[in-house]
Design a protein around this nucleic acid. Structure first.
Lengths: 129, 129
DNA sequence: CAGGATCCACGTCGATACTG
DNA sequence: CAGTATCGACGTGGATCCTG
């Protein structure tokens, strides 16, 4: 609430504290990134090549697949290996850290499957009222 | 990968299956929503009023606070109660389902705190190579 | 096969001003 | 206090075309 609490925000910034630097927010942003988790889940089945991932996620564009894989590689969640065949083939593998992230997400996945019906119900009720 | 796998996507759609309707994706979108989790975490400390939440999250705008709270209420994760005082006061409370979502997120929160340093390291390494 | 580059439509979000 | 309404900036992502 910038208009009400600009003061506090400014204090934080003056002290070199950036609320957007919070680890939880950073990881949440990652999780939020629309494709990251789907790709990680796919790689949980084993290493896969670029187009194989594309086939597994029919509604992703090449652009986004490339970009998301770069981000994941950059953050050490996925390993990229190029094989000098012709035409070239590239294999993506879940890193140990990527695996541990998926493990940490398990609770959330289960929750999603268990509670989505409740959410839909809540939405219906809300739509009435 | 629309150009490569448009066929498969079309098949799915023809069968009435919408990949974006996947519970996991829906919940992930929710988690992604930049402010939802921060608000839920804040409400974990107990019920809070509109401006109290704003004070706790200095860099949220009134617009986003309102909108996010509406979404949470709509999905049954948060309860909204109006007290007819003057000026009016509104209290937001975590619902049981909201609490269970937070519990399901615990693993992820812990992971974020434990592994964020590793991610930063990976980024540094990547920035070099 | 595995991308890189470019263009553009769209949705999200912040800032601002106003209300019961 | 707790919002609503409106506008404009910005980022994200899809479509398309090109390359080693």
């Amino acid at each position: 609430m910038r208009d009400v609490q600009q003061n506090r925000l400014d204090e934080w910034k003056a002290q070199g504290f950036d609320p957007t630097a919070c680890p939880v927010r950073q990881v949440l942003d990652h999780v939020a990134a629309k494709w990251t988790m789907l790709i990680l889940l796919e790689l949980a089945n084993g290493p896969a090549r670029f187009n194989a991932l594309g086939r597994a996620l029919p509604d992703i564009s090449k652009r986004m697949l490339t970009q998301t894989l770069r981000d994941l590689e950059r953050d050490g969640l996925v390993t990229r290996e190029v094989f000098p065949t012709k035409p070239p083939s590239v294999e993506y593998t879940l890193s140990p850290m990527g695996q541990s992230l998926l493990s940490a997400m398990d609770g959330l996945f289960d929750w999603a499957n268990d509670n989505f019906d409740h959410i839909k119900q809540a939405r219906d009720v809300y739509a009435q009222g």
